[in-house]
Structures are given as structure tokens and as C-alpha cells.
Simulated assay, not measured.
Amino acid sequence: MDNHMTFARRELGRTGLTVTPVCVGGGPLGSMPDLFGYHVSDERGVETAVAALTGPFNFLDTSAGYSDGESERRIGEALRQVGGVPEGFVVATKVDRDFGSGDFSGAQVRRSAEGSMTRLGLDRLPLVYLHDPEHISFEEGMAPGGPVEALVDMHRQGMIQHLGVAGGPVDLMARYLRTGIFEALITHNRWTLVDRSAGELIDEAVSLGVGVVNGAPFGGGVLAKGTAVVGKYAYRTATDEIMRRIRAMEEACAAHGVPLAAAALQFSLRDPRIVSTIVGISRPERVAATAKMATWPIPDELWGELDPLAAPRDQWIY
């Protein structure tokens, strides 16, 4: 791997953190076969995390809920192997509900964060997102004793340095941003070559000084592996219209000698509103492969061909 490749770092909103335009996603390295369709061994997961920590990107994203904490545990082991968090590196995680009971109380969020600290081997967490708050109402999320109050308390106590929110529905994410509590946002599957649901949310985040991190630029895999391999978009069966448009994108990219994955990733990277883009990685060599996709030469003409192929609004996820 070319450890000498460098990527200019960008300020993540008003956090004071500076991060590379690509963020390594730690979901797959913990092994989530039900979501991604394949297993990742403990050894390979740790090796992948080591590659992420020693490669050209300085940003790694995980979650307490990924593979029941296994992603964080493997990253923690990798951190031990490399001698701690590298200088200037940002490890971000997320607090989750209890997947068994659905409990998303303040007490559960505190347990989630404390578990993350233990598994990662960190005495404080640089950036923690409230993860998938769509599983409760906004009122429950903001209620006394609820998850947001717990996060604010842990931030005040110094356990967490910066707070973010990560989730799906764009209107709900906007409501959380308007509280002024969160400094970073992860939106996923909603700002890609094919789906533009998050456009207005991203604009609002920028206007509020919130750092935008774009997750799932490949729509769960189809915009990287292609329609011959993947029939889903955002982990659900894709509509015929979505698949037709992605096939047209594949043809346009092939005509220019550009991998569809490179166009899908750079669609996000070239957007000045987006600070960093998360790419889930499950093998050590994929770190270098992602860097190659991020820098693949793409002619302006291709962007002009791809843009009209985006799905119409009635096909978006929102």
C-alpha cells in the first residue's frame, strides 16, 4: 500500500477536528453478514483496522452497535498493536439503543458510550454520534432523562469531546440539527449518484456550521459492485427504475474507462458541502484500493452524462 499518498484535511464543521475526505467505515470489519452478505474473521478485521490506522486516511467511523461491539473491539486491538491513536487521527463512534429491548434511554446511551470506551481502549471519545434516532420519536429523544440529555452530560463531563447525529430520515435529522447541540451529521444512502434525498438537509447543515459526513456512497454496494452482482439499493430490493438508471450509469462509466465505484465515490468527494465520505472496508488491501478510486481521473464530460441519470424524486428514500 502507498502510505505516502496524502489527502488534504478539511475542518469538520466547528469541531476543530480536521479530517481526510475519505473516512474508513468500521461496520464491515466487525463482520455483519446479515447486512453485507459475508463474514469477516477476527484476524482479518484487526488487520483491516491496522491498515486503516496506518494508511492515507485519518478518520475511522464505527459504532457500539456494529456486530454487537465486535467492530470496536477489533479496532481497539488494532490501536494497541499500533501503539495508540496515531497523531492527528480521529476515531468516531456512535451510541446505540439496546437491540434486544429497544431501550434508548439516557441510561442506555451512557452504557453504550462506556462500553465503547472499554472496547476501544480510550479514556475519552473524540466524536460520538446519536445513532439511528428514528427508532424513537424526536420528543423521546429530547426528553428529560433521554438519550440527547445523556450525551450532553457526558460531553460536559469530558467523556465525549464532540457530539454528532447519524441516521436516515432527512426531516428528522434536520430537527436534531436545529437544536444546536450537534456539531456533525452523518447522512447515509441519501446523497449518491442515484438518490438525492439529502440535498436540502446538507444545505441546512452547512448553514448551521455542522460538519457533514456522507455515508454509503455506494448505496449499500450496487454503485460499487454493479447491477450484475447486487440487486439492492440501501439494503432493500431496488426498484426497476433505480436499476435501469444504474445500468445506464455503468454503461456511461465503461465508455470512459472509469469504474462505477470511482464515479460513485467522487460524486460525494467533489461536493464542497461534504467534509468526509464514509467507505466501509473489510480487507486491508481495500484501504489502498479506496485511495485509488478517490483519485481516479474522471473527465468532466462523464459528470455531464451521469447527472441526468439520477433517479426522480418519487424514487428517493427521504
Rank of each mutant, 00 (worst) to 15 (best):
W296N: 14
A252K: 08
G141E: 02
P28Q: 12
R245E: 07
E305G: 12
D2R: 13
I202E: 04
M159A: 15
R9T: 14
A311T: 03
V229M: 12
P33C: 09
L163C: 04
G76K: 07
F218C: 02
E114P: 00
H155V: 14
T62N: 08
R178K: 14
V229N: 10
I298A: 05
L265A: 07
F89W: 09
D203L: 07
V40L: 10
G76Y: 06
M154S: 03
G26K: 04
R286I: 00
V91T: 11
I186Y: 07
L125T: 09
D103A: 11
E200W: 07
T192G: 00
V275M: 04
E11N: 13
P86C: 12
A238P: 03
M159D: 15
I160P: 01
G231S: 15
R110C: 11
S116M: 09
A262M: 04
L172C: 07
L120Q: 05
P272W: 01
G69Y: 00
S41C: 13
P21H: 00
A262V: 12
G220P: 08
E285P: 02
F267D: 04
P144F: 12
E241Q: 09
R244E: 12
P297R: 10
S71P: 08
G168C: 09
E200M: 11
E70N: 07
P259S: 06
G83K: 12
P133H: 02
T239N: 07
S41Y: 11
Q315R: 11
D123Y: 14
V206E: 14
T93D: 15
T6W: 10
A51H: 02
K225E: 12
F267P: 03
P144I: 13
M154K: 07
M293E: 11
S197E: 00
A205Y: 01
V213F: 13
T93Q: 11
G25I: 05
D307I: 13
E250P: 02
R190K: 13
G76N: 09
S105E: 05
R273E: 08
D61V: 06
L127F: 10
A216W: 04
Q157I: 12
M159T: 15
T118Q: 14
Y176F: 11
P284Q: 09
G209P: 05
Q315F: 00
A311C: 06
G199H: 02
L260Q: 03
A255T: 15
V95M: 14
L208D: 06
S197A: 10
A254R: 13
G211V: 06
A92I: 09
V85K: 11
G16C: 08
L208Q: 11
L260N: 01
S282I: 01
I186Q: 02
K225A: 14
A255P: 07
E87A: 13
L35V: 15
L127Y: 09
S276W: 01
S101H: 07
M5D: 08
V22K: 01
G257E: 08
R74H: 05
G167W: 00
A238T: 00
L172V: 06
Y233T: 00
L265H: 05
G219V: 10
S71T: 08
A205C: 10
R124M: 14
G304I: 11
R44T: 12
R74E: 01
P21R: 04
G209L: 06
R196S: 10
D132H: 01
A8I: 11
P217C: 08
I242W: 08
C253E: 04
I202V: 13
Q108T: 05
V212S: 00
G146P: 02
T179N: 09
D96R: 11
H135Y: 15
